[in-house]
Design a protein around this nucleic acid. Sequence first.
DNA 1: ATCAATGCAAAAACTTTGCACTGAT
DNA 2: ATCAGTGCAAAGTTTTTGCATTGAT
Lengths: 141, 141
Amino acid sequence: MKNRELKKVGLKTTQPRARILQLLESNTDRHFSAEDVYRCLLENEEDVGLATVYRVLTQFEAAGLVTRHHFEGGKLAVFELDQGVHHDHLMCLNCGKIFEFSDELIEERQKIIAEQLGFDITDHALYLYGKCRKENCEHLK
Amino acid sequence: MKNRELKKVGLKTTQPRARILQLLESNTDRHFSAEDVYRCLLENEEDVGLATVYRVLTQFEAAGLVTRHHFEGGKLAVFELDQGVHHDHLMCLNCGKIFEFSDELIEERQKIIAEQLGFDITDHALYLYGKCRKENCEHLK
DNA sequence: ATCAATGCAAAAACTTTGCACTGAT
DNA sequence: ATCAGTGCAAAGTTTTTGCATTGAT
């Protein structure tokens, strides 16, 4: 079923790859570590080796299917499906929740800055860290 | 000599801490991994344990003396001295060089976005990745 | 049938921790 | 003299790799 997407980026359709892509596609709001993916698949009785999860996520990244992040504080890398539209991240340091946003002005400004410095931008990432003022913000232990 | 700065942030002045601070202060343009710091000190005949380097850098970070970064691609954390003025980073994916910049408009915009989303920002980081068009850009092997 | 992809276990890479000793006040 | 800080070695985490086996075309 994930046949098309995988072929498109030049990856042979295998069970692990299809399952991981499926998982990411049905949780576009989440940011998965390799462990997360591994455990989610296990829970679904879809056994995949952890090494394979790492390999597949790295391949997906190289293929432009996913983006890898290193959030402040976290030691693991986390991945999310790339859905065509770039977005940035805002993370609550209390509850760990991640919010996504995008801003045309900032994007424009980045291009101008890169141009001035003589750079061809291939990639960029903006992370805001703070505390959400929501009453439902559960503090991390 | 690094007495004052360390005391100010509530850290007892010890040889390892003074040496590491000294190293960072005389290389404000560099981004050091713990290993980098360790090796630089060894080369200067200033023996310090690697574990201590990690501990001190973490303390410096907590004290607001340094900032920790996880650049794209790199697996190690790197540190740089915090010099009061916030700045962002632009990294060349060819030669690895890091350029610093800061932009008032982007800063403003971030505040507005955070406000709209009901966040109190404590921290932020913007990374641009690309290729510098300089003729002296040495490609990574 | 072929060759890439997988799973496992082992290794590597990076960072943290325990503990006895050293050093700053 | 005291107690925080250090160094070393050991352990922890996260990620990668080697190799025999499995699976997709």
